[in-house]
Design a protein around this nucleic acid. Structure first.
Lengths: 343, 343
DNA sequence: TAAATTTGTGTAAACCTGTGCACATCACAC
DNA sequence: GTGTGATGTGCACAGGTTTACACAAATTTA
């Protein structure tokens, strides 16, 4: 009936040692004799004792908790990243506190406050950005910050991103190599930095090639937006014959609009390229050519950075190369090889 | 350069009050005068003070943390549930600690140990089950346990599940009403209790109708398994004309195998029913008839239960009715209405 | 005006752990 | 016998908070 769980004191009494001994028993590398250690472990086992990490974190100033701050957790890409991050954290002996936001910076800021109140060892942002002043407060307190696919750069925090602009350029080159004469661009209105970079790369490469691509930008980064984008672009008089979607989720929507609503054949009449390599991109019906985000790398290297003790490690930006997943949604080139012209 | 963050003591000094006052300032309902409260809030703001919930949880014996224990976080249904749970928890002033497992009971047990070491207020299991003894230890310490779609029942914990068996029965009835003469069952080998119940319902209803349905059970509960299931069932000499898949994810695989590998038309030649109502089931190309799991309900009512102070609340089992989402993957009945025979 | 009540504040103990310091024990060598 | 070093243990404090208790001040009541 006791509301409070068993503490080190109880274990110490049962084992007939001091509280300090049981603390040392669970501290790797502490000086303790094998026999007392065994006696304590036995007592701990019968009592079902687990070290209280709240108290431990309080005194050691290291809670072992890392906050993951994100919006739209149920989205394929986000959930994939979330899974990879939680696994990487667990491998490193940390544990993930997941806080979801509505995507706004205010909401992310509030999430960070939550993280601070739990004295989180670090915070990883998948969405939004905290104000500079709060971020500085965090870092003064020894809390590491990781920003994934964010743009603004707080000194002392790690910035992880893909070569988005480059991918946009490659997408245009691939569409042209596939013989597309009217390439188009489809994106959302969210203004996410990584999406903007992909758009920019595509647009600039087009300009360099002397092409003015059709563009459509609508709503949120979702499948439904993809459907609308498809309808909007593919009912134009000068119908595009190749579309680069800044996200796989939207690409799936575009493909479905083309195939099921307009009867357009993929890739004969329309080539499609996405970004992220979500699981659905590999599904039989889509088989979408896309750029694979190295999710595992992002996760493991982020965690690696934030558990490295030396804050003086110079690396503060991590740019990863997305790997092209070439599938059947892009028409085989006009005899040319798959060489994509680089900038 | 101080490694330790600002504490209530700092705020108290700056505001010229005692540490107790600043504690009362942040405790709703505590007795404090408006002017000192204002002075403290101002001081807290300039110092960027956040109440240390580690220390708070230590003394109040209530950390505000709830553990979510699950495998395969990146799966559409799981991530949907996870998102709903984290949101519901945040609305209730709690915060979610996500621990992922490999699906085994041992792994879940280990996760629960982690939860205990953080003195979590509650633990919600989406996968696996802890041993009875450990579960009892938790409850003795005032930690609530919620088991979602699990079967074994620890007294004192909340069991949340859908009417799976009933849904299986309805699935068979619907296929028959659609004119299917060779209904079949497709499932995974994981032995998840909810999947088994759906299978059982389907099988029993078939037996009662004097039918012996074809069955296929393979591997994990995944899209790829669905592909294999589809190939396995649909290349039989007595090819099924209706399949109930115990999961949407597998149903998508079955549909893709039928449509893209075997050229079978849906629903003319094959009717399909799934379970869960994952987002992809509503996508244009699938438009899958399925049973919608009331994810929001599951989340909000679980959280409601676990924050209710009175552990004497008698309700210990929560059975939710999945809502039928009737879409185009099932052939329109032979003139009959959509009445599904109940047991 | 005195007594009784309310209101707000400070003091100190409690929660549970990690760890510096002092000390006891033991082995060993001289 | 003492000196030296190594090893293991206990004491006591620190870390940041909540809260019971005591008490002073302010307000109401008689």
């Amino acid at each position: 009936m006791t509301k409070t769980s068993t503490s080190a004191k109880d274990v110490a009494e049962l084992a007939g040692v001091s509280r300090a001994a049981v603390s040392r028993c669970f501290t790797p590398g502490a000086s303790i004799s094998p026999e007392t250690r065994a006696r304590i472990l036995k007592a701990a086992d019968t009592l079902g004792y687990q070290v209280n990490r709240l108290a431990s974190g309080l005194i050691r100033n290291e809670s072992g908790i890392v906050a993951l701050i994100s919006a739209e957790l149920a989205t394929p890409f986000r959930s994939k990243l979330l899974a990879a991050l939680t696994e990487a954290l667990q491998r490193a002996g940390k544990v993930a506190l997941v806080i979801n936001t509505d995507g706004s910076n205010d909401s992310a800021q509030e999430a960070l406050r939550q993280a601070i109140s739990y004295r989180t060892d670090a915070a990883i942002f998948l969405s939004g950005m905290p104000a500079r002043s709060l971020a500085e407060t965090c870092q003064r307190n020894g809390m590491r910050l990781v920003l994934i696919s964010r743009n603004g750069h707080h000194p002392g925090s790690l910035l992880v991103r893909s070569q988005d602009e480059e991918a946009g350029r490659r997408a245009l080159a691939m569409l042209r190599a596939a013989g597309c004469e009217r390439p188009a661009l489809a994106s959302s209105l969210t203004g996410t930095p990584s999406l903007l970079a992909r758009e920019r790369g595509f647009r600039e490469a087009a300009r360099e090639a002397g092409i003015e691509p059709a563009e459509a930008r609508l709503g949120a980064t979702s499948y439904d937006t993809g459907l609308e984008l498809g309808m909007s672009l593919l009912t134009r008089p000068d119908r595009p014959d190749g579309i680069f979607c800044t996200t796989d989720l939207m690409a799936c929507g575009v493909m479905d609009a083309a195939r099921w609503r307009l009867g357009i054949r993929i890739p004969d009449q329309l080539s499609l390229i996405g970004f992220d390599d979500i699981p659905q991109a590999g599904w039989e019906g889509y088989d979408l050519t896309t750029f694979q985000q190295p999710v595992e790398d992002i996760a493991s290297r982020s965690v690696e950075w934030l558990i490295s003790k030396e804050s003086g490690s110079e690396i503060e930006e991590l740019i990863l190369e997305p790997r092209l997943k070439s599938r059947s949604s892009v028409k085989r080139g006009t005899g040319g090889s798959d060489q994509t012209a680089s900038a």
